[in-house]
Amino acid sequence: MEKNKILVVDDDAKLRELLTRYLDQQGYSVETLPDARDIDRKLARNRPDLLVLDVMMPGEDGLALVRRLRAQGEMIPVIMLTARGEDIDRILGLEMGADDYLPKPFNPRELTARIQSVLRRHLATPALTASHDENALIHFGEFCLNLGQRELRQNDKPITLTSAEFAVISVLATHPRRPLTREQLMEMALGKGNGESLDRSIDVHISRLRKALDSETAGPRYIQTVWGYGYVFVPDGQARE
């Protein structure tokens, strides 16, 4: 069985060495870079399955790199490493298009768990209702969500989504008109719960999805806020009473 390839980009040489040894022991094929200068060449010649990317690096930093890659339509999964666990770094990373983040310092076992979760989301369809199979097409407005191909299209044009964003919209769309709490979305879409249930990442993913779905409207149509509760998917885009 071919190993998943992980590319670690971090200017801390000791951390790169530690993660190389540890992730290799966990069954991954690992390469590292000290900065982002050669990232485009790596993606073109020996494409990894996932990037582990430090926020604070010399030259092009992690946030700028993710923003550039996403703007180019590059949707390789990205886990960002944020110094001191600053909320602003985490939120900015998600807003730029990262799939997940991990504050430094961290236990390598936690990084492995995050890698497994992101790769699982990237390759598999999230939990569906009994009335939908993995090859279902869900139409709403000018959009079509293809669960089997993991693709969202608007008027037959593909919309770029991260694995986390696709997981969130899939869970919402397969539970139409059913309000879901942030905690439920964290668990059903991202496989996170308990201590992580109040994580603001759901709000950031929802915000990015709304920008994609409502770019030409004054407010959210399909993903509506249930105040004091969470979010609900409304396929016809009409305001709830």
Rank of each mutant, 00 (worst) to 15 (best):
H175V: 11
L161S: 05
L161P: 01
M57W: 00
A130G: 05
G193V: 04
E196Q: 11
L19I: 01
V171C: 07
D11Q: 00
A98E: 04
H205T: 12
L92M: 13
L172T: 03
G148V: 06
S201E: 15
F166I: 10
P105M: 06
A218H: 06
Q224I: 10
I88D: 04
L123H: 13
L7A: 02
L50K: 02
P58I: 11
R109T: 06
L172F: 05
D35I: 09
A167I: 00
A130S: 14
D87N: 10
H139M: 10
I159K: 03
Q184M: 14
P176G: 08
A130N: 07
V55E: 01
I159F: 02
Q26F: 03
N135S: 15
D10V: 03
A13V: 15
E17Y: 07
D49F: 01
L15H: 07
L15Y: 03
P176M: 05
I169M: 07
Q116L: 09
A113Y: 07
L123P: 01
I159H: 03
L185H: 10
P235A: 11
R41Q: 11
A167S: 09
R45D: 15
P126E: 14
A113Q: 03
D12Y: 04
K157D: 14
G141C: 03
G228A: 09
P105C: 05
Y101F: 15
D156C: 09
D38F: 14
T129W: 08
L19E: 00
D214V: 05
S29Y: 15
M96K: 14
V52N: 00
V234Q: 08
E31C: 11
I91L: 12
I223H: 02
G230R: 01
S117W: 02
I202V: 14
L65G: 04
T225K: 14
G93N: 03
D89W: 00
L69T: 07
Q72P: 01
P48C: 07
R150C: 14
A218V: 08
D99S: 06
Q72I: 09
N135M: 11
Y222V: 12
Q184K: 09
Q184P: 01
E165N: 11
V232N: 10
P179L: 14
T225S: 06
P176A: 08
V232C: 08
E165W: 13
G62N: 04
E17F: 13
K157W: 04
G191L: 05
I76H: 12
E95D: 15
T160D: 15
R21N: 08
F233D: 06
E183Y: 08
L145T: 01
G59F: 03
I138Q: 06
S131L: 12
K192A: 15
